[in-house]
Amino acid sequence: MNDRPAREERTSFTEACYVSDGLASAWELFGLESHYAFFDFIFKEMWDCESTSGDGKYKVLKETENLTEWDGKPITSKVKSALIQIAIIEVACAFAIQSLKTKKNSKLAWSYACEANLWLGLLKGTMTGYAQAPDDSSKFAKAGAAARHAENHQMKAEIIKWWSENRNNYKSMDAAAEQAAGKIAPVAFRTARKWIGDHNKKQRAGTA
């Protein structure tokens, strides 16, 4: 984790960045790919989603705490613990993103940054001792991360499938994204447009 600025030099922006970096370090400790993978996939995905909010992710956390089954079987304490930790990461990340997207040093930006820092602290508390014995829980954390983003990947696949079947009906990708957003899948226009655009680029490059 990067060094934190001196107290008198801190801003809502530096605090949100501090939290984000701390979350990336936690992600790496789980064995969930690299520190940079967190920003490339998790952070960016949440940043691009216009509906990302800490309050929304908190609701997901509460639902996770009440889970009784996992993959069709009674959930074990280790699996639930890993899922909760992944959910806490997302709560903290969402509040950090909201802070970064809000006017720097405004009361609201500071409020989001403080919430993000609070959740980072809670995450650290749940991970006490994890660095000494990560192997036993790492597979559950990986499974939890995959589950957290499975729905998102499914929505992306639905939009790409729809776009492939209906692209000739639209004059532009913007028009198609406007139709897809909220109708084909519950995502914002910006997200749908990005998915369609990325898929189009891959097709032109012959990698789709």
Rank of each mutant, 00 (worst) to 15 (best):
M46P: 07
K101R: 15
F38C: 03
E90M: 13
I42R: 10
P74Y: 00
A37T: 10
I97N: 01
I97P: 01
P74C: 03
D40W: 11
W119K: 08
K73L: 13
V60S: 13
I42P: 00
A37G: 05
T52N: 04
E63T: 15
W70D: 09
K78A: 13
I84E: 12
I97A: 03
P74Q: 03
S81T: 11
G56T: 05
D40S: 14
A87D: 01
A87I: 02
A109F: 06
S53R: 06
A96T: 03
Y58D: 14
E45A: 14
K73E: 13
I75L: 04
G56I: 06
S53Q: 05
E50D: 15
F95A: 09
I97H: 00
T128Q: 14
S99L: 06
W119V: 06
E65H: 09
I42A: 03
L123D: 07
E69P: 04
K57V: 05
P74G: 08
K59D: 15
T102V: 00
Q85P: 05
A87Y: 00
L120M: 02
A116Y: 00
I86F: 10
E50R: 12
V79E: 11
M46I: 11
S111V: 07
F39L: 08
T52A: 01
K73P: 08
V79Q: 13
W110M: 10
F41W: 15
S53K: 04
D40I: 12
V60E: 15
Y58A: 14
S106I: 07
N105M: 07
W119E: 09
A109M: 08
G54R: 08
I97T: 01
E63P: 13
L122M: 13
N66K: 13
K104L: 05
I84A: 03
I97K: 02
L61R: 10
V91C: 04
Q98F: 01
G121I: 02
L120W: 02
D40T: 12
G121R: 04
M127P: 05
D71V: 06
K78M: 12
A94T: 07
V91P: 01
S106R: 09
I42V: 10
I88A: 07
S111F: 12
K73G: 10
A94G: 03
T102C: 01
D48M: 11
T68E: 03
K101L: 13
S99R: 08
F95C: 04
L61Q: 09
L122T: 12
T64E: 09
G125Y: 10
C114Q: 11
S99I: 03
N117Y: 05
K73Y: 11
G72E: 01
S51E: 15
